[in-house]
Each structure stands twice: as C-alpha cells, then as structure tokens.
Amino acid sequence: MDTIRLAIVGYGKIARDQHHPAIAGHTGYRLDAVASRNAEVAGVANFESLEALLEEGPEIDAVSLCTPATVRTAQARLAMAHGKHVMLEKPPGATLAEIEILREDAQRCGVTLFASWHSRHAPYVAQARRWLTTRKIQRVDIEWKEDVRVWHPGQAWIWQPGGMGVFDPGINALSIATAILPRPFYLVDAQLQVPGNCQTPIAASLDFIDGVNVPIHAEFDFRQADTPPIWDIHVETDDGRLTLTRGGCEMLIDGQSQGMQEDAEYAGLYERFANLIHQGQSDLDVSPLRHVADALTLGYRHTVDDFVE
C-alpha cells in the first residue's frame, strides 16, 4: 500500500496533542476516521465506538489505539480480527498475559502489531545506547517527576486498577533504560506511596540490579507541582557520566551538552509503524511493562494523603 488509511481510537489529550499532529506530518498516512465517546474531529468520519467504525465506517488499513490499557486488548483483538494493523499506545496492555494473546492473534490474522514506546524515539536515546556500548557502567540513577494535574487533568482512570498511577509516566523512563543499558536488570526493592483514596501509587522508589550487580535506582513522583518536570537518567561509567535529560531531548557527558533537539517522538513512532507494516512484521516488546508489574507485585505500599484533583 502507498498510503496507510488510519483511524484513531480514543481521541483524548495524548491523541490530540501527539498522535494527530504526527500523523498529519507523515506523508505515508491519511487519517480517515476517529472513534471516540467524547470527541469529534473535523474533516474525518467520526464514530462513538470502534465497533461502529468497523461496521459502518470507511475502509481503513490500520488503527492507533489511544484508549486506556484496560480496554485496549479487546479493541486490538477486534481490529485484528477485521484484518487491521494495530498500534498500541503505551503500555501495550493492562497485564502481561494478555499481550501473549495479542501476539498470537497478530500472527494468526497476518497483521502488524506494534507496542509503541514513544520515549525510545527521543532524539538522543540511540546515541546514548551507542556511547554506553563501549563503557563499563558503574551506576544508574533515574529521576522522573511531573505534576499529574498538568499531564493527566481530570483522568480518574489513572488512579484505578490498571491505570498504573505514577508508573504511567515512569514506564517512559523504564522504556529508555531498557533500550540504552546493555544488560537486562531486575527489581530488588520497591517502595510505593499510594493515596488513601486511590488504587495506584502517586510516587515510587525502585532499586534494580543487572547481571553483574550494577545498581539502578529510580525515583518517580506525580507531585512535582509549580516547577518544571524532571525527566533525567544519569549513568556513571568508567569513562565519564552520561546524562539524558528533558526525556532524551538532550545528552550530556560529564555535564557538557552534546546537543539538544526538539521532541519528535511520535513522528518516530509512526515512521516505525509504517516500516513494520510494509515489512509485514510486528514489534511487541514488553520489558518496560514487566518492570512495572514486578514493582506492583513486590512493592511495599505506604498510604499517604488522599489525592484531590
């Protein structure tokens, strides 16, 4: 196919701010439809549900699922059963087990399935990975802090089971760490701060080690009010300190900037999705979600003040 006819399912903040502009800026796509309960988009066919889109809508090739993870698997299975390629916003599902079902469905239906991790497409992630390849890593420190009221305003689902709380942004840091570090790592301790009126944590302190006992520490916090967000990863090596800051839009070596670029993560996502479709392949890496699942399993829960929007 020359042009991929695409539909967005779930037109909320992330679809409006990131997905739609990225699609509009890519010559390989044409946005033909949107399925959303609470929004309509001018110039395309609009439906209240994916079911209605598939039954009544224009012919499409692929769907981009921007709905909450708790409903995404059922939607992905339905779309693939109709022969559509599927991009999954992060996280790819609410559980690890359901991802394996999706993997089998994609193979059986002969379609592309893409578990997208947008932060891996930040400008300096690939360069950081290359730089670390020839160094001995001694320690990793991750600091990922932002204001939930700014980045997820009015989104009560994030505090419900499956919503992940602070791990919704924290998984972005883990997606970068699993991409740039040369060895797998695993969780050894997790301290979770959970508001008394919520089911998911508002902050988390995590400790990992890799196969040669390199310590990896992460601090996630959703309470970074009135100050800019912090999206930093620091890697101490035998040949200097690498820092990815601004979510990977800038890289520093021993405090000296190696350059800074504007965020183009979602453009990278859609380029990757198009390539996978044209190559007849899928990409379903779940390593960042596995770390979150481990934290929610092993983590010690500390009750903190109720969260009020």
Results as ranks from 00 to 15, higher is better:
I99H: 07
T297R: 15
V34H: 14
I171V: 06
S282K: 05
I137Y: 04
D285M: 08
V148I: 14
D189Q: 06
P169E: 07
Y266R: 14
I60N: 04
V286S: 09
P58T: 10
Y186F: 02
A126Y: 05
Q193Y: 15
H217K: 05
E48M: 04
R290G: 04
N172R: 12
H26A: 15
V194C: 08
R120Y: 08
I8K: 06
P169L: 02
M251T: 00
L113H: 12
R183G: 01
Q281E: 14
L88K: 07
R129E: 03
R37Q: 12
L53S: 07
P184V: 00
E100Q: 09
Q75A: 00
T67P: 09
R149C: 07
T237A: 05
E59S: 07
M260A: 13
L296K: 13
P229R: 03
D32Y: 00
I230C: 00
E219M: 08
R120P: 14
V214T: 05
F114D: 13
T112H: 14
Y300L: 08
H82E: 01
R183E: 02
T133K: 12
Q281N: 05
A24C: 13
V148W: 10
Q258P: 00
A35T: 09
A264R: 14
V214W: 00
I137T: 09
L54D: 00
L242H: 01
